[in-house]
Design a protein around this nucleic acid. Structure first.
Length: 399
RNA sequence: GGGUAGGUGGUGGAGUGGUCUAUCACAUCUGACUGUAAAUCAGACGACUUCGGUCUUCGGGGGUUCGAAUCCCUCCCUACCCA
């Protein structure tokens, strides 16, 4: 097997859920065709997480094979809302939010893809202009049965939840994107299956050869459930190095292999070695290092690793914690209360919350727990001490 | 258009005149144990507080009542059935 063929094989299998039509696609790649590979992403949240990055990495694989990448930002579809990965109706986002999110998307994606040769398109360019007649034509290609047999639509129907007609139109829009950009291949998460197929259907209707489809696996989040922005279990590619490192370290051990496969491009033989030879913690350190280095560079990754080992494995206090000044209560010369301080610096949601944390022994000064009652800031005694709230919030207090 | 059942805290889902800041589960937070893992255990989980309390919450608005998540009116929203 030639090196190129091996690479193609890996591209079509690593982290891949399904490919249609596999043989067809492989043949074209082997033939060295410069395929147009489409990937669309809706700017529904301000950050891209590792789950989405699985597809982006896959896109990079194709890029490395010499394919042409068409990156579609769903500025239009983003306002409509895809329900593929949702168990409930997704609200329509206002254009402003979408716009705001959109601005950061290409920057984020550029951490993985080489954007020099990428064709970036915004789908409002064509979707905002379709007329009813054209939409009807597209709608004719689908039957109601196609839609209601989709698993999560069916689930909602069965449980008496609302399904709006608008949502059903979503696949048409994504499919139409394929027609417009004349894609040869489209990549998406496996939850995108239906939408991807819609592209094939509409392309055929438009007299084009239907695109091949490659779906990537969905990965699980830090809590072992599906990674989803709405569950707060994501690792975002814009996360700070230390934060990102920590999040990876907090993954359940059972997800190690999956993350190596989906979120890195370390050769599989080496991954197997790691998993066999190391204890899970060490393998996880490698994983964290690799992931951070992918998004922030090798140096940052090394720093984050050192930081992690120092601060968490050895239980030391971080050395680059923020210095925060204790303020006064109103315009008096009395120092503010500890509760107010904790709330003001964002370590607790409310004074009640702060009080609770203190009562539960979650607040300490230089390692000494603060008693629930009677704490008063004292410049002499407290200046420069390290305040710790909960597990991970530190601040050096100054006056 | 008609009928029926509903809308409760981040989520699911109890509660049908006072004992309701509202059972319970999940999520979350704190502590213990650890590898910031998993599992487990303990506790917390509206806001403010001089820690005695005070104020706000059960789709929106209005009303009845000493007292309403609970009753009435009205508006908005959802599902199911019929047309």
């Amino acid at each position: 097997m030639s090196e190129q063929e091996q690479k193609i094989d890996e591209t079509l299998t690593r982290g891949v859920a399904e490919v249609i039509e596999g043989e067809h696609l492989k043949k074209r790649l082997l033939g060295g065709e410069k395929l147009r590979v489409k990937f669309g992403i809706d700017p529904t949240s301000p950050s891209i997480h590792l789950g989405r990055a699985v597809s982006l990495l896959k896109l990079r694989d194709f890029q490395e094979l010499g394919c042409e990448i068409v990156f579609i930002v769903g500025d239009f579809t983003g306002t409509i809302g895809d329900t593929s990965d949702k168990e409930s109706e997704r609200p329509m986002l206002d254009a402003e939010t979408v716009q705001r999110n959109m601005e950061t998307y290409t920057i984020q994606a550029a951490k993985i893809l080489d954007f020099a040769g990428v064709e970036v398109r915004f789908n409002a360019e064509w979707l905002a202009r379709l007329d009813y007649k054209e939409i009807l034509g597209q709608a004719e290609a689908f039957s109601l049965h196609d839609f209601i047999s989709r698993e999560n639509i069916k689930k909602r129907l069965d449980s008496g939840k609302r399904v709006s007609l608008r949502e059903l139109l979503y696949p048409l829009m994504q499919g139409h994107d394929s027609v417009v950009v004349k894609s040869d291949v489209e990549i998406g998460g496996s939850d995108q299956w239906f939408n991807l197929l819609a592209g094939r259907k509409l392309q055929e209707r438009a007299g084009q050869a239907p695109q091949d489809i490659l779906t990537t696996d969905l990965i699980l989040g830090t809590d072992g459930r599906k990674m989803s922005s709405s569950w707060g279990n994501t690792i975002n590619i814009l996360d700070e190095p230390n934060d990102m490192f920590g999040k990876v370290m907090s993954l359940p051990d059972t997800l190690l292999e999956s993350y190596f496969i989906h979120c890195t491009r370390i050769p599989m033989e080496r991954v197997k070695e790691f998993l066999k030879a190391d204890n899970p913690r060490d393998a996880k350190l490698r994983l964290a290092h690799e992931i951070v280095s992918l998004y922030h560079g090798a140096k940052e990754a090394a720093d984050a690793e050192a930081y992690f080992i120092d601060n968490f494995s050895k239980g030391k206090i971080p050395n680059d914690i923020p210095e925060l000044a204790v303020g006064y209560e109103g315009d008096t010369r009395k120092f503010e209360s500890l509760e107010s301080f904790i709330v003001r610096i964002g370590f607790a949601a409310s004074k009640s919350d702060a009080r609770r944390k203190i009562e539960q022994g979650g607040v300490s000064l230089d390692g000494e727990k603060v008693a629930a009652e009677g704490f008063i800031f004292d410049k002499e005694a407290h200046d420069g001490k390290v305040l710790k709230v909960g597990k991970k919030d530190f601040a050096r207090i100054v006056f």
